[in-house]
Design a protein around this nucleic acid. Sequence first.
RNA 1: GGCCCCAUCGUCUAGAGGUCUAGGACACCGGCUUUUCACGCCGGCAACGGGGGUUCGAGUCCCCCUGGGGUCACCA
Length: 555
Amino acid sequence: MGSTALRVRFAPSPTGYLHVGGARTALFNWLLARQSGGVFVLRIEDTDRTRHVAAAEQKILDDLRWLGLDWDEGPDAGGDCGPYFQSQRLDIYQRYVEQLLEEGNAYYALDTPEELEAMRADARKAKRASTYRRPDPLPTVKEGLAARDRGQPAVVRFLMPPGDVVVHDLVRGEVRVPQDEMEDFVILKSDGWPTYHLACVVDDAMMKVTLVCRGQDHLSNAPKHVALQQALGFQTPQYAHLPLIFNLDGSKMGKRDKHVAVHEAVARLIRDGKWTIDTVGEHARIDADGASRWFGDKKAGRKPEFQALDMDGLIRLAGHAGVVLPEIDVHDFRVSGYLPEALGNFLNLLGWSPGDDREHLSRDEAVAAFSIDRIVKSNAKFDRDKLLALNTHWCAGVSPGRLLEAFRDFTQTGGSALNALDDGTASRVLEACKGLRTFRDVENKAGALFVADAQLEYDAKAVRKVLAKNDGQGYAMLERLLPALDSLATWSPDAVEALLADVCEKYDVKLGDVAQPVRVAVTGRTISPAIGDTLMLLGKERTLTRIRNCLAAVA
RNA sequence: GGCCCCAUCGUCUAGAGGUCUAGGACACCGGCUUUUCACGCCGGCAACGGGGGUUCGAGUCCCCCUGGGGUCACCA
């Protein structure tokens, strides 16, 4: 790998939460750095002022940390190549633009949007790839500046030098792009901010990045970047372009998916008369105008504007509408009760494999095993079933302490009612929920134990099938059980289960005939931890209270 | 549409010319376990897109076709 240490970077743009695809890229870069003693740089590419989302950086950093990916240089970490926000490096880009301009490698372009559109149309008709027609003669810098000062749109374009460009990609080999495929792309926007291409090339050079590992959607950018590097006299880093990740059905994993899912549910609620537009605003905590823009108005022919609602509002709205959001961001999985160990393991296996039959890799094992030449070339699909299986595996394999820690993050981040539990209780709940697939399972299985007794809701179907059937056989069983439980001296899972077993023998019935009525009576549902654990968690008093309440309700 | 990239079970993948009657995992199907839901255990189904070459021999190399994807912005 040469004499200098490896320096890699992850460069997200703060437009929302950390996407799983981005997380995979970050993970691979991190792995590369950690296994080689190299440096992992985090850089925020916030040069798009229109798409910038407030506090998005913090969310991204937070989810990166949650995944266990730490960076050596970047926001909160500092470093010698900062600042690590592109919005704070504007003067640097300006310098290089001037250099390019002076050396005749760039020029001011004064085309109007209409002219550009016309060029695109022409190119399409002529079946040409590049659309931009270089002006002849080129405007001088003076003319450009003058036009800009007059308020005319003026951008700076890179003057693409003649000759094909070859990119040496570590996963794809040599990629050659013919010269006429590349046009004079914009490097400085009319608002004075750099485009991605310029900022990225300049920063990678100044931050001494030796290897650029990113998604394959950037492959077609690589030749442009190489040409720019040559014009600026920069060294070209090594490149590795990762295969892309799609939904199982082949569609892209876009954040639109979430809006669409919620929108459909809300439309249904409104159609059924259960909600109005005001309800939407209320739940999403946005004003009436925002709500109506987000939802759209069919009669007025107004399409939904999804940007009217940010992700946090959308999450709130989804909660109220009873929609499980399609999970596409790291944060979604965090809120859904996944372990970072599992998500990381899963992402690690998307586009890479260790080469043997191992599927379960700890982070340390991944650091040891990872290598760029084992990266797969073809795109992958995100199979949630497999992720679920991995999560199940890690939930079972992780230490009780670690599981508790992760569970607390889940209840906190997702706003679970179980967040109120103390550590001791939470541990016992986790223990009683062994076999869990996600932390949501814990909520579903044990949540009813922690609502107030008077608030306990009974599932009608469960009552019918377990308690009421056969002339109230279940209720009868409860009547018999009540005094026995009441007089039970030691309240432990074993003692409770022994008592139930005795009852079975005494009345010659199956364990299910006695345990299920109790379960339904104390939880309102047919699902809960093992009956001994369920009653233990509930405590003797509340168990008896709930059974009495249940009996009283039918009396 | 131009250009670029890719192509093994439904999915993630192993496979770097003979050891491939193609391996593993998830999903699925059967069975076992079981007081619910899960978990767990055992077994089964299931793939080299098509056509040409090269070679004694091709899933593995080459070409074409087909299919999928990316990209063609003053977004990154």
